[in-house]
Every structure is written in C-alpha cells, then in structure tokens.
Design a protein around this nucleic acid. Structure first.
Length: 167
DNA sequence: GCCAACGTTGGC
DNA sequence: GCCAACGTTGGC
C-alpha cells in the first residue's frame, strides 16, 4: 500500500532541515576502512529501504557532514564523511523507488565514540541514535554534532566548507 | 541467539 | 483506514 499522501513530502524544495547526519553501516557489509580506501571517489550509499531514511538523503546537500557509525559490531561513531553527490536512483534497486547519495571519507575520529558513551551523555539523550536506533540515516543537531566531535577528540569540528554556509 | 522496537503488509 | 500479524534491524 502506498503511504497516505498527506502534506506533500517535498524535501527537495525544503529549506534545509539539517546539515549534519549520521549514517549507519554494518562493518561486515561496508566499513569505514572501505570508505577511506575509496578516497575521493567515495561510495554510493545504496541499500537503504526505508522511506524516512530515503527522505533524509533527499534532503542532503553537497558538503553536508555525516557521522559514520558502525552498527552490530563496533557500535561506535568512527569517522566523518561528506556528501559528494545528491540523491540519485539506487542502482541496486529494481523498482526505481529508492535513492541514495554518494559520500566520501573526510576524517577519522581520533577516539571512537561508542553507543554506550552517547547514551551516558545527558546532552545527547535526544539524539536519534538513542531515540530512533533502528533508523539507518538520521539527522544530527548542530549541538549534538559538536558534542560527539568533542568526545571523539576533535577540537576543531570539521564543518561544511565556509562557502556552503547559509546566513 | 534472543528479543524489543518498529516499519510494512494485508484482511476486514 | 484500522490494526493484528509478520519481518527486519540491531543492541545486548
């Protein structure tokens, strides 16, 4: 059944809801090291089969930053990636329904920030990683972004390039 | 390996 | 359109 169409989704035209995100991957399927190995070529973030996650990807802009989180094994934020291609059809999908963005590795976190640490930090209790733990693509609030970077040992938070900054 | 959370499916 | 059954994700 088609999802009820209430207010049109229209994420394309949306003023940006977020410039920070979190991407989950099982390291068995695709790890941070593999993304690093791909260099500037990056990787299409295929395989997402969840409408909410897809809509977040459609809202991503070039230069948006993403935490790279290892699920299942590792259970930690391990690095920072950058969106290098806007949402486009997911070639691993026959139905044409699903889309993906491309991302590349920007920097590893000097210290991995574990799920346990995130859960233990009151500043992060509203983070989607805690509240919507099954979502594989999540928005991250700027204060959450800064906090996780701090915990990860990054003094200067890598941000989207200054030129991309609004206001 | 178990099981809770939660998205999806399908009968009504 | 509701909601129970079912399947999948992912932490533990």
């Amino acid at each position: 059944m088609k999802p009820a169409k209430r207010k049109p989704q229209n994420t394309e035209n949306n003023p940006i809801p977020s410039q920070f995100w979190l991407l989950k991957s099982e390291p068995d399927a695709f790890s941070w090291d593999q993304l690093v190995a791909n260099g500037d070529k990056g990787e299409p973030w295929t395989g997402v089969r969840n409408y909410q996650a897809r809509n977040f990807m459609k809202a991503m802009r070039l230069g948006d930053r993403c935490f790279f989180y290892h699920s299942n094994e590792g259970l930690a934020v391990v690095g920072i990636a950058e969106v290098i291609a806007l949402a486009h059809p997911d070639l691993s999908d026959d139905t044409g329904k699903w889309e993906c963005v491309d991302v590349k590795a920007v920097a590893p976190l000097p210290r991995h920030v574990t799920l346990a640490e995130v859960k233990a930090n009151p500043k992060l209790e509203k983070m989607s990683l805690v509240t919507s733990f099954r979502l594989s693509v999540q928005p991250v609030q700027p204060d959450e972004w800064a906090e996780v970077c701090r915990m990860g040992g990054l003094e200067a938070t890598p941000k989207p390039a200054e030129k991309n900054k609004r206001k």
